[in-house]
């Protein structure tokens, strides 16, 4: 019998303790210190179970809490957040001051008056951001982040999604901040997440726009951006054209640009170039008069396999220097 009563008391105390779970442990244990003895007295002096006589443990805990007024708790709670609150108050004060000071610059008595006018613009932007995030979530492949919320690369779908999100956002904005506590939490945390994602996405897009592709397959076919390049003319530091120049990328790979075919400006004939490097068609140099001057011992692109290619540079460069006085670098 005694064991049963002891169990009943222990159980009751445990449930009261559970109901006081919000309290700091020290305060709670101080409150509960004598409760088993007290309940034993209560149990010993009457009839009926504890629950019958005292009510549910949770109700008992609430009454106990109200009566004990738990001074420690009241002192501790503000302490725990005091610093945060002080910071918050300071920030709010600073914002108010900035509000008043910046206002006149914008032509309003307060900056917030001007910002309030921008609210619908924010709703539209929010709709756009939401659409972008949705599109990114539902993105199937490895589409790169662009400016439209494309789903599966479809532009029409993107516009539909964009329109729906913008209208939804405006509708939401006109309803105002939700009234309930949890809807409000959801509202603000959703906004925060959206802004965060927007900043990340913006940075990504901007980053990708900044980087000129470091290495594009520089072939004359495909979308390398160099498909219009037909030939390359290289000049040295003195402004002399370099013949048979070789181009390499950072990996030591030769850069292949232009074509091997040269259009003869006079005949319009397409002849294959036998130059080993750039320019493939030295005759077509845009900086040099089209008709090459003296001493050309033959037509340029003459296919002459017997002549070692190393011979060509020795001939052509000698032309240009001779046209200018060389000693000028002696200064």
């Amino acid at each position: 019998m005694n064991d049963v009563v002891a169990d009943e008391i222990t159980g009751y105390v445990a449930r009261v303790r559970l109901a006081l779970g919000g309290l700091p442990e020290k305060t709670r244990e101080e409150l509960l210190e004598d409760l088993p003895e007290h309940l034993a007295e209560v149990r010993a002096e009457g009839t009926g179970t504890l629950v019958e006589r005292l009510g549910e443990p949770a109700a008992y805990a609430a009454e106990l809490l109200a009566a004990a007024e738990v001074p420690d708790v009241k002192a501790e709670e503000p302490d725990r957040y005091a610093e945060l609150k002080a910071v918050r108050d300071q920030v709010v004060r600073g914002l108010r001051e900035a509000d008043v000071r910046v206002g006149p610059v914008l032509g309003y008595s307060k900056a917030s008056e001007f910002l309030a006018l921008l609210l619908p613009a924010w709703w539209v932007l929010r709709g756009y951001l939401a659409a972008m995030v949705l599109a990114h979530v539902f993105a199937t492949g490895d589409e790169r982040l662009g400016l439209l919320p494309r789903v599966g690369g479809s532009g029409v779908l993107a516009l539909v999604l964009l329109g729906a999100c913008v209208v939804g956002s405006i509708w939401l904005g006109r309803r105002g901040t939700p009234a309930g506590q949890w809807p409000r939490y959801a509202y603000w945390s959703g906004t925060a997440v959206l802004i965060l994602l927007a900043v990340v996405g913006f940075a990504t897009v901007d980053d990708e726009a900044q980087v000129t592709p470091s290495y594009v397959d520089a072939t004359y076919s495909g979308n390398s951006g160099y498909e219009n390049v037909r030939d390359v003319f290289v000049y040295d530091g003195q402004g002399h054209p370099v013949e048979n120049a070789q181009l390499y990328d950072q990996n030591g790979q030769p850069i292949q640009l232009g074509s091997q075919w040269c259009d003869d400006p006079d005949t319009g004939e397409s002849v294959q170039s036998w130059q080993r490097g750039y320019p493939r068609c030295p005759k077509l140099n845009p900086f040099v008069a089209p008709s090459p001057t003296p001493m050309e011992n033959g037509e340029w692109p003459t296919p002459d396999p017997s002549v070692p290619p190393s011979l060509t540079p020795s001939v052509t460069p000698s032309v240009t220097p001779s046209a200018k006085p060389i000693p000028s670098p002696s200064k």
């Binding site: 409760l35 007290h38 002096e45 009454e63 106990l64 809490l65 109200a66």
Partner: peptide
């Protein structure tokens, strides 16, 4: 007096509505 004793005194004095937890909590405080 002990807790339940005090509760009984209060009730005997005419404070019928006083609750056990209130008395216990007040004593602790």
């Amino acid at each position: 007096g002990y807790g339940y004793d005090i509760l009984r005194r209060l009730r005997a004095a005419g404070l019928q509505d006083v609750g056990d937890a209130s008395v216990y909590g007040t004593l602790r405080r």
